[in-house]
Amino acid sequence: MGGLEDLVDAYAVTVLNGLARGLVLFLIAVGLSLIFGLMDVLNLAHGAVFLLGGYAAVQLAPTGDGFLVALAVAAVLGLLLGGGMAAAVRPIAGRRGHLDQALLTLGASYVLAEIAAIVWGDGYYSPLAPPAVASSVTVLGQAFPAYRLVVIVVGLVLALAVYLLFERTQIGALVRATVADRGMVASLGVNTTVVLVGVFAVGTALAAVGGVLGAPILTVRPGIDRQVLLLALITVVIGGLGSIRGALIGALLIGQVEALGVALLPQFAAFLLFGAMAAVLLVRPAGLFGSLAEAR
């Protein structure tokens, strides 16, 4: 009996780990999803923004002190980058499928990642958690880093805030209407450019903040931008493009699959991820919360 309880306890920790990862992933995926929903732009530079957020933590809060400063800097950086990207993408959005924007955002991701590589080299960094939450707490008899609980809480709060912002406020209604029918909103005399740039900026800032939050959990290193981008893409595919709920459910699902996969079958963790995605797409070709019209 004791063996079974130990097993359950061990997995409780795994589940919590998965929750923390999933929520970090949500912060990245939600921007990707909204930017696509709004502008029909798949931003392949989104992972590079996360990477820059990670390096902000490395630079400004390597020992955990100054963590809030790092968060603020990353948020501002993300807003600026997002605004800039929105302006850059605007003239080519809607042009001939997704090829040009793929190339443009891919180019941007090369540039951003390479700038990071010039500044921080190819080392592996693991910035420490802020001192106040650097200790461990006991969860179901297992030691668990307090910082990860903080990530879970902050992640949930941000998710809730994003959800409320988009589902319950006037601004959110405007954005949702723009997702559904850009032309209609424009014909109402609303300046859709402001909406588009705003969402691009906020979505990008969330990814940068995710980079800071995730830095003490993940290792900040060259190449993690690609990995994170891929995870975010899978999340968005599973959840359905343009859906906040979808991004959250998808991210939590991926977080769990990843954590459990790594704990149970480390060799095949990648397969579990793609298997989950293939399974969802077989049943629902436009993702859990997407409509086929969006997939077109």
Binding site: D40, L42, A102, L233, I234, V237, F274, L281, A295
Partner: peptide, 12 residues
């Protein structure tokens, strides 16, 4: 898959 979903699936 359609449109950008094809792109993502092939990437995956």
């Amino acid at each position: 898959a359609r449109g950008v979903y094809f792109l993502m699936l092939t990437l995956a």
